[in-house]
């Protein structure tokens, strides 16, 4: 069964490069309308997943549907409905910004020139400037502007704000959010900045060791995790109804980051709310293939 409300669905998706797996056993569903973050250490498979979703790489095993279609064997119009941007920005350094826009217009039937010009005006990037003379941050903004002018239903962005100074980064993400507000685009973006995830993402996918260890709404993730601490000598058994993601001991106490399934007895444990960063880090540290959220979306799978 293909769920019409998902923009990206994978079932046991894997990609093998010669001897090493770039992504393994990846099962996830990203619902329509979300701004989803893909986080994980370098080499965890983030770019591999994005490239396969963009139709640039062929999966080795498993199933992949993007906007309900297969990116590599589906109809050609998927390329127009999906915007992909990696860190190798597809810009011609000798072109002027205006020429780059005309080039984009010629190659994309759904091109919205007004949107592109509005974004560039807001960013104070003159149309007459040569791409090569712009700063790194401005080049990133132009590249994203070109990607957004296609008004794609789904944006796949590989570290769109990496290596930008804080102001340029903020402006870039704000333009992205405005596009989401105006066009209802869905977004899947990889990032190392957990601060960005909290500000702009409402869905989070954590990849560790080429596998998905967490995939859910950020709100749900925040509400379903707690830090429990207690004063105790030696090991204390965790209360019933929790899964321990990560535990830390001190001389006289114990602190657990847990996923909560039942209300916790607050007389024995001090209960605090972890930040999203603490939760993601706990999953990344634990990061073992046995992480329980891995198959949380199995029941929404594609089937055959």
């Amino acid at each position: 069964m293909i769920d019409g409300t998902a923009v990206l669905e994978t079932v046991n998706l894997g990609k093998r490069y010669r001897r090493k797996w770039g992504l393994q056993d990846c099962t996830l569903t990203i619902p329509k309308g979300r701004v989803a973050a893909l986080v994980g250490p370098n080499g965890a498979g983030k770019s591999t997943l994005l490239r396969m979703a963009a139709g640039l790489d062929q999966p080795s095993v498993g199933n992949l549907r993007v906007l309900g279609e297969s990116p590599t064997s589906g109809s050609g119009d998927l390329k127009e409905r999906v915007g992909y941007l990696d860190q190798e920005r597809p810009l011609y350094k000798s072109f002027r910004v205006a020429e780059m826009l005309r080039f984009g217009a010629k190659n994309n039937p759904n091109w919205n020139m007004a949107v592109a010009q509005e974004h560039l005006a807001q960013l104070d990037i003159p149309l007459r400037s040569r791409i090569g003379n712009l700063s790194g941050g401005q080049q990133a903004q132009v590249a994203l502007t070109l990607c957004l002018a296609k008004e794609p239903e789904l944006l796949l962005l590989d570290e769109p704000a990496a290596a930008l100074d804080p102001v340029a980064r903020d402006e870039l993400l704000r333009i992205l959010m405005r596009q989401v507000a105006d066009c209802d685009s869905s977004v899947l973006l990889s990032t190392h900045s957990l601060g960005d995830v909290v500000a702009i993402c409402d869905y989070v996918v954590v990849l560790a060791h080429s596998r998905v260890v967490l995939s859910n709404d950020t709100e749900y993730v925040l509400e379903s995790h707690r830090i429990l601490s207690a004063v105790h000598d030696g090991d204390l058994l965790p209360p019933p109804g929790v899964s321990v993601i990560n535990s830390q001991s001190s001389t006289r106490g114990q602190s657990l980051l847990v996923r909560v399934e039942l209300p916790i007895d607050e007389t024995q444990w001090r209960v605090e709310r972890p930040t999203l960063e603490e939760i993601v880090l706990a999953y990344l540290r634990e990061g073992s293939p046995g992480a329980k959220d891995r198959h949380s979306h199995d029941d929404e799978g594609l089937g055959e």
């Binding site: 993400l173 704000r174 959010m177 405005r178 989401v180 507000a181 105006d182 993402c201 409402d202």
Partner: peptide, 18 residues
Amino acid sequence: SLRDVVTQITINPNTVHR
């Protein structure tokens, strides 16, 4: 409005809506 908030600070419009 949703768009004004998104213009004002870097935030997901879905969050404002929510």
